[in-house]
Simulated assay, not measured.
Amino acid sequence: MDKTAALLALAALGQDTRLEAFRLLVRAGGEGVPAGEIASQLGTVQNTMSAHLKVLDRAGLVHTEREGRVIRYLVDMIAFRELLAYLMEDCCRGAPELCQPVIQAASCKC
Score class of each variant (00 low, 15 high):
residue 10 L to F: 04
residue 27 R to D: 14
residue 11 A to G: 07
residue 43 G to R: 11
residue 104 Q to C: 05
residue 106 A to T: 01
residue 77 M to D: 09
residue 43 G to V: 14
residue 52 H to P: 00
residue 96 P to I: 03
residue 55 V to I: 09
residue 33 V to M: 04
residue 53 L to N: 05
residue 14 G to Q: 10
residue 91 C to A: 08
residue 87 L to S: 08
residue 89 E to C: 03
residue 79 A to H: 13
residue 51 A to E: 14
residue 107 S to G: 12
residue 43 G to D: 15
residue 81 R to W: 03
residue 10 L to K: 04
residue 32 G to S: 02
residue 9 A to H: 02
residue 45 V to G: 11
residue 110 C to V: 13
residue 14 G to C: 07
residue 56 L to Q: 01
residue 68 G to N: 04
residue 46 Q to N: 14
residue 50 S to W: 08
residue 9 A to Y: 05
residue 12 A to F: 01
residue 100 Q to M: 08
residue 6 A to Y: 07
residue 39 A to W: 02
residue 66 R to D: 05
residue 77 M to F: 10
residue 66 R to M: 10
residue 30 G to F: 09
residue 27 R to S: 15
residue 23 R to M: 11
residue 108 C to W: 13
residue 38 I to D: 06
residue 64 T to Q: 07
residue 85 A to H: 05
residue 103 I to P: 01
residue 85 A to D: 08
residue 52 H to M: 02
residue 47 N to G: 09
residue 82 E to A: 12
residue 34 P to W: 05
residue 105 A to I: 02
residue 27 R to I: 09
residue 68 G to S: 10
residue 44 T to Y: 08
residue 27 R to M: 10
residue 45 V to E: 15
residue 16 D to V: 06
residue 41 Q to I: 15
residue 95 A to H: 13
residue 83 L to I: 10
residue 110 C to I: 15
residue 51 A to Q: 12
residue 3 K to A: 14
residue 97 E to S: 06
residue 25 L to V: 05
residue 23 R to F: 08
residue 35 A to T: 11
residue 7 L to F: 15
residue 88 M to Y: 14
